[in-house]
Design a protein around this nucleic acid. Structure first.
Length: 221
DNA sequence: GTACAGATAAACT
DNA sequence: GTTTATCTGTACA
């Protein structure tokens, strides 16, 4: 009889690789956060790569500072930063220690803990609180939204993501998604690098006109 | 469907 | 004092 392979957290070696390869391979995996108030998880459907001090859009372009230190740290750890006075963005550090590189998680297909996600989102989006539940597809369709939905904040910065309470696991039962590369979103420099990777056709990716642009798999310079 | 203003605080210069 | 890897509501087509 066949036995379903068990999903296990990706090992550190999965992150100690070329960043675009990591970005590509994270699509289809599940991001899981076990918080005291419950578990939330979602399938990764959109990511972006930020690589090196030569990448003008990478925070490490400004060099090593208190904020960017995690990017220079060991792979398989979270780099969480606070942005626009309101939101957090969650990255996973890649490559070798000392070489600043990471993958930004931009959107998830919500899988577990949808009620908890809705409560967290509604508490932070008063305009949505007029009795209309946030639809499934809009719970985690952006980096700020998924951080709220999963309850991730600066408290999780530098956390090891190879095991509880926060980890990424493969999903052996799920087919590898077809992927599309596009320019990265929300930046004013480095837009010539097509380092955003999305699961083709997923209704759970962030709203962006760039969703229509496609490109072949890029290479690191 | 697209376009824009405003909210709001940490980190950096 | 300036910048920011965002989101939301409102306005308009």
């Amino acid at each position: 009889m066949t036995r379903a392979r068990e999903a296990r957290p990706l090992p550190r070696a999965a992150y100690e690789r070329e960043t675009l390869a990591v970005a590509h391979d994270l699509l289809g995996c599940r991001l899981v956060h076990d918080a005291p108030e419950g578990r939330t998880s979602g399938r990764i459907v959109e990511v972006e790569a930020y690589h090196g001090e030569d990448d003008p859009a990478c925070h490490a372009a400004a060099g090593l500072t208190a904020r960017t230190a995690p990017l220079y740290g060991p792979p398989g750890h979270a780099y969480v930063y606070f942005i626009y006075g309101m939101y957090h963005c969650v990255n996973v550090v890649t490559r070798d220690e000392g070489l600043p590189s990471a993958v930004l998680i931009r959107a998830l297909e919500p899988l577990e803990g949808l009620d908890l996600m809705r409560r967290r989102r509604a508490a932070r989006a008063p305009g949505r609180g007029n009795g209309v539940a946030i639809p499934h597809r809009a719970l985690c369709d952006g980096p700020g939204k998924l951080s709220v939905a999963l309850g991730l904040t600066l408290a999780h910065n530098r956390l090891d993501v190879t095991g509880p309470p926060l980890w990424i696991e493969s999903d052996p039962g799920h087919p590898d998604p077809e992927v599309v590369w596009t320019p990265r979103v929300g930046i004013t420099v480095g837009t010539e690098r097509f380092w955003r990777c999305i699961a083709k056709g997923s209704p759970f990716v962030s709203r962006s006109p760039l969703n229509r642009e496609i490109a072949p798999r890029p290479v690191l310079r």
